[in-house]
Write a protein that binds this DNA or RNA. Sequence first.
DNA 1: CCCTATTTGTATCGAGCACTACAAAAAGCT
DNA 2: AGCTTTTTGTAGTGCTCGATACAAATAGGG
Lengths: 194, 194
Amino acid sequence: MGRNIAFDYDKAIHRATLLFWRQGYTNTSLRDLLKAMHIGEGSFYNTVKSKKALFLECLKHYGETVGSKRAAALFSQPSVKKGIRALFNTVLDDLDNPANPRMCFMANSVSCDVVKESELRQFLEAAMSDFQSRFVARLQKAVQSGELPKDFDSVSVAAIVATFMQGLLRGVIINYDRRKIERQVEILLTGLGF
Amino acid sequence: MGRNIAFDYDKAIHRATLLFWRQGYTNTSLRDLLKAMHIGEGSFYNTVKSKKALFLECLKHYGETVGSKRAAALFSQPSVKKGIRALFNTVLDDLDNPANPRMCFMANSVSCDVVKESELRQFLEAAMSDFQSRFVARLQKAVQSGELPKDFDSVSVAAIVATFMQGLLRGVIINYDRRKIERQVEILLTGLGF
DNA sequence: CCCTATTTGTATCGAGCACTACAAAAAGCT
DNA sequence: AGCTTTTTGTAGTGCTCGATACAAATAGGG
């Protein structure tokens, strides 16, 4: 019993995600978010409780869509060399897609204002370390299968690629040239033994 | 004629820099800044004019101290291979220094809230592209001197190192382990031909 | 020692922020 | 229909923000 919910929760989260993605956490006001989500204060505080909780939901939503897509690109290729290249391609496709803000929501959320909220920080930490360990495991499998040499330092190289990716996703805020980035990626991967 | 200024401008800028550095642009309030600078609203708006202008001054101050020190580490070594390693060492020393916030003020300023202010964005763009072109020139000199092979792609490799550095300076916000980073840097540089 | 120019501190501005109080609206239940 | 429960929109809470208004304080020039 009681009145039925009149808005689409998932769609509202998606719309909020787009706004946070474009403008960042602190810089996006709740009123703008509610306008984009097409719901009022009452509905919002009955379901989501707070701006911080909304941001967390948006991070999860982003991880389940964009993040999963990228992970799939990396892990579903038969060879790790193809996988990493597929990962970068997917990332660059996202950056090229005019429907998206030209940056990565999650990478962009590694900033002072977000990280000082411990729950948000913990989520980001967990998401990154989760991806990292899956990446390392994939590299180690490639070592065992013979695709990579026996003395390959999977842990360090995974970290290098992740760090480079983070720098890339930060750099495109200032300027973006896909062709130049593709060339850099190829040189990097070749140098790392991929 | 007229009353004399009673505060030390440079010291005030330095103190403001430390606060911005630790907390970011939007997240640092003018009142906190003034308290740290030991001056009042009146003096502030008579000299610096606005928060944005203050931030710009702080970026310049940071560039002239920390930035210059890093550039010197890179450019004053006889070989570019030693120079790049000196650069990373200097950066890691800064991160280890407990007197500093464990992040890079300038790298950290590449964020939505800062970049949407066009004057700040332009300064960051200029600072990065200036460093980049000096770096490329140094690499090309190394190619001519024979330290690097004739077919070395100075432009791309400079961009790779800069991108990795940016990712590194972002990643340390979440977690920092100098030994692991040093290992990654060595693998990266070896892979790139340094 | 007055006049003028500049700095300094205080008190405050209007705007925007995340969040809440509350009553009207709408649904299921008997 | 009447009762209960939940959602919804409006109006407003107290707070903080960057920026200002302005008078008191302080200096040099005549």
